[in-house]
Design a binder for these strands. Structure first.
Lengths: 186, 186
DNA sequence: ACGAGTTGCGTACGATTGTACCCATGACCC
DNA sequence: GGGTCATGGGTACAATCGTACGCAACTCGT
C-alpha cells in the first residue's frame, strides 16, 4: 500500500507540517480566511487531523505564530550577536532593515497579521511582547535602553512602510537615520 | 407610530450610521469577526439595510476605512499646519506621537486592521498609500523628503509599539529621538 | 384625496464554518 | 503470528455567514 498521498499512518512530523501549512495559508488568505479545511488541504492531511492534533483554531494559530516569531527573533539575534563595535551594530541594523529579516512578502504579511491579533487578544500580545523584548535586549548589548527602544521603533516603522509602499527604501538614507538616532556621526 | 426603535422610514443618516457602527464593530471584533448581521445590530438597523445601502461587504469596509483614514489624516495635517519653525515641527511630531492622533485603543486597533488588509488587497493599499503620502507631504513642509520619510517611519514604529506595549513612551526620549533624526541639536 | 412609484425591510436559501463522534486501521506485546 | 489497544480519519451536525428576492410602507404629483 504505497500509493502516494494515501494511507499515511504513523507520520510523526504531521503536527509540524500542519503548523507550517497553517502559516502558508495565513500568509495567502489572512487569519480571517484561515479555516481547518484550508489548512488541512494545504498540509495534505484529512480534516479530522485538525481536531486530533489541536484543541481548536486558537491553539493552532498560537503555535503557528509562536514558531514564526521565534524564527524571526532568532534571525534578529543572530545578526546582532556577530557585531563587536557600535559602528558594526549600526551596519547590522541597516542590514536587518534592508533585506535580511523582513525580506519576503510572506513574512511582512505574517507580521501584520500577528500584530493585528496581538492588538486585540492578550495571548498573542504576550507573544509579541516576548519577541520585542528579545530584539530590544539584543540591541541593548550595543546601545543604551532608550536608544535601543527608538532604534527598534524605527525598524518597526520601516518594516511597516515596506509592506505598504511600492518602492523599497534607500539604504543610504536608512543608514544615515540609524546613525543619527544612535548619535554616531557619519 | 412613534414606538422607539420601530418604523424608522426616511432616515437620511442611516448610511452614515452604518459606517460608524461598522468601524465600532471592526475595533471590537476585528475585520474577521465583522459581519452584516453584527454591524446591523450595532447600528440598530435591519439586516436588509446592509444589502440595500452597500453592494457587499467589500464596499462597506472600503467606505469605513476611507472615513477612518481621512479623519486621522486630517488631524495629522492640522497638527502640522499650525507650526512655523523646524523646532515647532519637532514639537508637533512629539505631540502627535504622545497623545493626540493615536490616543485611543480603538484607533490603534483600526490602524492595524487596515494595514493588514492593505498588505493583501490592492484597493486598501491605495487607501493607505494616500494616507501616508498626505502625512509625508505635511512633514515635507518642514523637512527634506528623506528626513520626512524617516520621521514618518519613526512615528509609525512608535505607534505600533504603543499598541503592543503596556507602558507608554517617555516623552523626553521620543523628543530626543526626533531631534536627532531631524538633525536638530538639543 | 388618491394612485403610482420609489424606498426600505423581512425572510429564506445555499454555502461554509468549527467541532464532535464513531469506527477502521496499523503497531506492539505475548 | 495473532489479539488488543491506542492512534487517527471520515462524516455528520448545528450554527453562521453573505446575499437575493418579493412585498409592505411611505411620499409625492395631480
Amino acid at each position: 500500500m504505497s500509493e502516494p498521498g494515501r494511507r499515511r499512518r504513523h507520520d510523526p512530523d504531521r503536527r509540524e507540517r500542519i503548523i507550517d501549512a497553517c502559516l502558508d495559508v495565513i500568509a495567502e488568505e489572512g487569519v480571517a480566511g484561515t479555516s481547518h479545511r484550508r489548512v488541512a488541504a494545504a498540509a495534505d492531511v484529512p480534516l479530522g487531523s485538525m481536531t486530533y492534533h489541536f484543541s481548536g483554531m486558537d491553539e493552532l494559530l498560537q503555535e503557528a505564530f509562536t514558531r514564526f516569531a521565534t524564527a524571526v527573533s532568532d534571525e534578529f539575534e543572530q545578526h546582532m550577536a556577530a557585531v563587536a563595535t557600535r559602528e558594526d551594530a549600526v551596519e547590522a541594523v541597516v542590514a536587518i532593515i534592508a533585506d535580511t529579516v523582513f525580506a519576503s512578502p510572506r513574512d511582512l504579511v505574517l507580521t501584520h497579521e500577528l500584530y493585528t491579533l496581538a492588538a486585540r487578544e492578550p495571548a498573542f500580545r504576550a507573544l509579541t511582547n516576548a519577541w520585542m523584548t528579545r530584539s530590544r535586549t539584543a540591541l541593548e548589548r550595543h546601545f543604551d535602553p532608550a536608544t535601543a527602544r527608538m532604534v527598534d521603533a524605527l525598524i518597526e516603522g520601516l518594516t511597516i512602510h515596506r509592506a505598504l509602499d511600492t518602492e523599497p527604501h534607500d539604504a543610504q538614507v536608512v543608514a544615515e537615520a540609524v546613525r543619527r538616532i544612535t548619535a554616531i556621526g557619519t
